[in-house]
Structures are given as structure tokens and as C-alpha cells.
Computed example of a mutant assay.
Amino acid sequence: MNLNAPTQMVFIIAVVLALVALIGYFMPTIAIIGVYSFWIMTVAFIVLAAGVMFRGA
């Protein structure tokens, strides 16, 4: 299996999801994001891993 660099759009999506998860974790006033911050960060990692494993269009 060949690994490729993710496209810029996939990278930006993963970074935005990771930032949303961090904001939700460190700012508990945003309750709905704080509850799911672990899962949002997991989705960000999966998006980034998929971008590396599959060839960009």
C-alpha cells in the first residue's frame, strides 16, 4: 500500500475538526461539543488517515 500526502482540503477539514474538539474540551460552557470532544477528535484523525491512505482526486 502506497501512502500519499493528503490534499489540502482534507488536511484543513481534519484541523478544523481537531480545533473544534479542543475548544469543546477546554471550554465546558459549550456543552454539546464538550461531551463529544473525544469523538470529534477521533473523526478528525480518521479523516486525516483516510486522506493519507487514499489517493486524492
Score class of each variant (00 low, 15 high):
39 W>V: 14
30 I>Q: 02
19 L>V: 07
56 G>I: 08
11 F>T: 15
29 T>A: 14
49 A>V: 12
19 L>I: 06
17 L>P: 02
4 N>H: 14
52 V>Q: 04
3 L>P: 04
51 G>Y: 01
47 V>R: 01
29 T>H: 12
42 T>Y: 05
38 F>C: 10
37 S>H: 09
53 M>A: 15
57 A>Y: 12
12 I>S: 12
22 L>A: 12
31 A>R: 10
45 F>R: 05
50 A>N: 07
11 F>S: 15
36 Y>N: 13
12 I>G: 06
2 N>Y: 07
17 L>G: 05
35 V>P: 05
50 A>Q: 06
34 G>K: 01
46 I>Q: 02
57 A>W: 12
29 T>V: 11
48 L>P: 02
14 A>Q: 03
36 Y>L: 14
28 P>R: 04
14 A>R: 01
2 N>Q: 13
6 P>S: 03
30 I>T: 04
38 F>E: 13
2 N>T: 13
18 A>V: 06
19 L>G: 03
24 G>K: 00
8 Q>E: 14
8 Q>P: 04
38 F>M: 10
26 F>K: 07
9 M>D: 13
30 I>E: 02
56 G>M: 08
13 I>W: 04
49 A>K: 05
46 I>T: 06
42 T>P: 08
3 L>K: 06
43 V>H: 04
17 L>C: 05
16 V>I: 10
18 A>G: 05
40 I>C: 02
16 V>L: 10
18 A>Y: 07
18 A>Q: 08
10 V>S: 04
44 A>W: 01
42 T>L: 14
41 M>L: 13
55 R>S: 14
43 V>L: 14
28 P>N: 04
41 M>T: 08
25 Y>C: 11
